[in-house]
Simulated assay, not measured.
Amino acid sequence: MALTETAYAKINLALHVRMRREDGYHDLETVFAFVDRGDVLSATDAEQDSVLVTGEFAGGIDNPLDNLVARALGKLPRVGGVSITLEKNLPVAAGLGGGSADAGAVFRIVRELAGLPDDWHARAAALGADVPACVESRTCIGRGTGTRLQPADDSLAGTAVLLVNPRTPLSTGPVFKAWDGIDRGALPSGDVRAMTIEGRNDLEGPAIALCPPIAGVLAALRGTSPFLARMSGSGATCFALYDSHEALAKAASQIATDHPGWWQMQGTLR
């Protein structure tokens, strides 16, 4: 059997960091959302598991045998193997959950081929805090380290979104370490649209301090008249939301003209 799955780009519409824990992790509240584009995984039955990485950002993966695709396959019991080709379209260390999205796509592939074990959520969480949300890749609220999920409404589904990255990798750990430890409050109440517009990303400041080009990306996006522009996750990718796909196309063209070296992706929120 041959299967193809998109590893949908993850964005944090809002990300409120509440507390630094004794185990080194952080308690947070976030609105996960997913763009209808991302990496692409092609899978076929095989005698043993294998992973081949292609695409623009294949070079960002240090060891294809130990990336999250291979590790996700190793977490899921089944008879026989799966041969996966990963087309890496999303930049690495970019705040888009690229590796987590890839792992989530593997879970969907294995679910189709062989079914998932009852404890799949725990197996996903062991791979990374974003992976459980990426398995279904639907808008949801994440709490704790991001693994405690609750469903959310679709009030922003179908929204035009532009992703922009200055092609500067930014690791998650240093950004969280640079957070000032101040609890600025919980996610606002209301639907996802209200939570997004009234929310914030508490990692924006520390990320900009470590990677100043993020400020330029945000300024450029805000200059294209979106109804919201914000950094995703721990950066360096930022996103802008538009009222129409015509406005998105115009913004993307403007960004490409003004900043031809930046990476961008146009899409729609799922």
Results as ranks from 00 to 15, higher is better:
Ala2Met: 12
Thr6Val: 15
Lys10Ala: 01
Lys10Phe: 01
Asn12Gly: 04
Leu13Arg: 03
His16Ser: 07
His16Met: 09
Arg18Met: 01
Met19Asn: 13
Arg21Gln: 03
Arg21Phe: 00
Glu22Gly: 13
Asp23Gly: 08
Gly24Ile: 04
Tyr25Asp: 07
Leu28Asn: 00
Glu29Val: 12
Glu29Met: 11
Glu29Arg: 10
Phe34Asn: 02
Arg37Tyr: 08
Arg37Gln: 15
Leu41Thr: 10
Ser42Trp: 06
Ser42Cys: 07
Thr44Val: 15
Ala46Asn: 08
Ala46Thr: 12
Val51Lys: 04
Thr54Arg: 15
Gly55Pro: 12
Ala58Tyr: 04
Ile61Val: 15
Asp62Thr: 14
Pro64Asp: 09
Leu65Asp: 15
Asp66Met: 14
Leu68Ser: 04
Ala72Arg: 04
Gly74Phe: 08
Leu76Ser: 08
Pro77Cys: 11
Pro77Tyr: 10
Gly80Gln: 11
Val82Pro: 02
Val82His: 03
Ser83Phe: 08
Glu87Trp: 04
Pro91Lys: 02
Val92Ala: 10
Val92Asn: 07
Ala94Glu: 04
Ala94Ile: 09
Leu96Trp: 08
Gly99Phe: 00
Ala101Pro: 00
Ala103Glu: 03
Ala105Tyr: 05
Ala105His: 07
Phe107Asp: 00
Phe107Asn: 01
Ile109Thr: 07
Leu113Trp: 12
Leu113Glu: 07
Ala114His: 13
Ala114Thr: 11
Pro117Leu: 05
Arg123Leu: 13
Arg123Ser: 05
Ala124Trp: 07
Ala125Val: 07
Ala125Asp: 04
Val131Glu: 09
Val135Asn: 06
Val135Trp: 11
Ser137Glu: 08
Ser137Lys: 11
Ser137His: 13
Thr139Asp: 06
Gly142Arg: 12
Gly142Leu: 13
Thr145Phe: 09
Gly146Gln: 12
Arg148Asp: 10
Arg148Thr: 09
Ala152Asp: 12
Asp153His: 06
Asp154His: 15
Val164Phe: 09
Arg167Val: 12
Thr168Phe: 14
Leu170Ile: 02
Pro174Arg: 00
Val175Cys: 04
Lys177Cys: 02
Lys177Trp: 01
Ala178Gly: 01
Gly181Arg: 00
Ile182Pro: 04
Asp183Pro: 00
Arg184Gly: 03
Arg184Ala: 03
Gly185Phe: 01
Gly185Tyr: 01
Ala186Asn: 11
Leu187Asn: 01
Ser189Trp: 10
Asp191Pro: 00
Val192Ile: 15
Val192Glu: 01
Ala194Pro: 03
Met195Glu: 05
Met195Thr: 04
Ile197Val: 15
Ile197Asn: 03
Glu198Ile: 05
Arg200Trp: 08
Arg200Asp: 10
Asp202Gln: 14
Leu203Arg: 09
Leu203Gln: 06
Leu203Glu: 07
Ala207Thr: 06
Ala209Trp: 02
Val217Lys: 03
Val217Ser: 06
Leu218Thr: 10
Leu218His: 05
Ala220Glu: 14
Phe227Met: 08
Ala229Ser: 13
Ala229Glu: 05
Gly233Tyr: 11
Thr237Met: 03
Thr237Phe: 01
Thr237Lys: 02
Phe239Met: 02
Asp243Gln: 15
Asp243Ile: 07
His245Cys: 13
Glu246Leu: 13
Ala249Ile: 09
Lys250Tyr: 05
Lys250Glu: 13
Lys250Cys: 12
Ala252Tyr: 03
Ile255Asp: 00
Ala256Tyr: 09
Ala256Ser: 15
Thr257Ala: 15
Gly261Ser: 05
Trp263Val: 04
Trp263Leu: 09
Gln266Ile: 09
Gly267Asp: 09
Gly267Ala: 11
